[in-house]
Design a protein around this nucleic acid. Sequence first.
DNA 1: TCATTGAAGTGGTCAGACCACACGATTTAC
DNA 2: GTAAATCGTGTGGTCTGACCACTTCAATGA
Lengths: 179, 179
Amino acid sequence: MMESKRPPSKFVAAISHIREMIKADRIGSGDKLPSERELSERLSIGRSSVREALRALELLGMIETRRGEGTYLRDFKDHQLVPLIGTFIFNDDQKKEHVHDIKTILEMGCLALLAVQPDFNQHSINYTETAFHELMDASGNSLLKKMWIIISDYAGDSGGQADERLTELLSGIRHINHS
Amino acid sequence: MMESKRPPSKFVAAISHIREMIKADRIGSGDKLPSERELSERLSIGRSSVREALRALELLGMIETRRGEGTYLRDFKDHQLVPLIGTFIFNDDQKKEHVHDIKTILEMGCLALLAVQPDFNQHSINYTETAFHELMDASGNSLLKKMWIIISDYAGDSGGQADERLTELLSGIRHINHS
DNA sequence: TCATTGAAGTGGTCAGACCACACGATTTAC
DNA sequence: GTAAATCGTGTGGTCTGACCACTTCAATGA
């Protein structure tokens, strides 16, 4: 028979338990969670397992730990994951040009989004680094902006200057005929 | 006063160290990482701290641990980000739209990168989901592909069909005159 | 009244001890 | 000779107890 179920590790179970506890006990943003030692008791698992779970939740930005004080529930917003995922993706051998190209692509995408808006007015646009901050807002895609900001960070751009790579890609994309 | 650096916790440092080690030692997908005990020695930190780091990386899907065997580096495409995010995030319609637009933007960027390549041949291109897997490779930007994979997973692909949003944005971008 | 002290609680870290499991070499049985 | 059972070693999984550094707050003292 298809034997399968391997009991999930304690620390994975602990993550679930802790989250259930948060919900059940009506713990809100900024509130304090039980101490690690107390969690250890209540969940009947070792403190080390509790810690592995808490560290993971901390990395995700769900909780905040303050030495000497305790563990607190954060106001968790999904966009906090964007930088995290960023470090995950950017980790390896990424070449600088790749990062820069991605940034340019996002800017190009931003322009495309603007261009398909009903009230689009090309003349009100310029293409400096600072201008794109507003353009990203105008695009209406908050995720796009977050990604762009993160990418810009990694690209370590000097700012200010308009990017010639953007010009290049924009002219390149014109050769694409998608019918 | 410039109050500042509190040394990051050992486990956060361990995450960085481990990732550096992976890069330095040329550990590839499927390869085995040093054992927890060895990592503990090499990094001069306790095994529990090593474990907290490894658990976090495991949660993200970067590594895979097999009891009795060891810890292995996962292939990037097996990342756990989507299910992970899914358990933490509420997805409204607007967010889905944003994600989908990002995906389309990345595809458009891919096309732009291809278009500026010397040997570009538009006729060899089609625009299905599967085709973009190869197009992403052809673009030469591995980072772009990674992002696209994640976003595609998250967007929950419709599959083989070409996307009309891509057509829309492509036609939109033509209205941009960047001189 | 106000500063000092110190106890208690908390997260941060470590070391050691088991356990369960997987693998491979050795030994054993056929 | 070959196949099966055995056992040693290494691994991750977990628990415990012990410190440390830090924060808070009540008790203490000037």
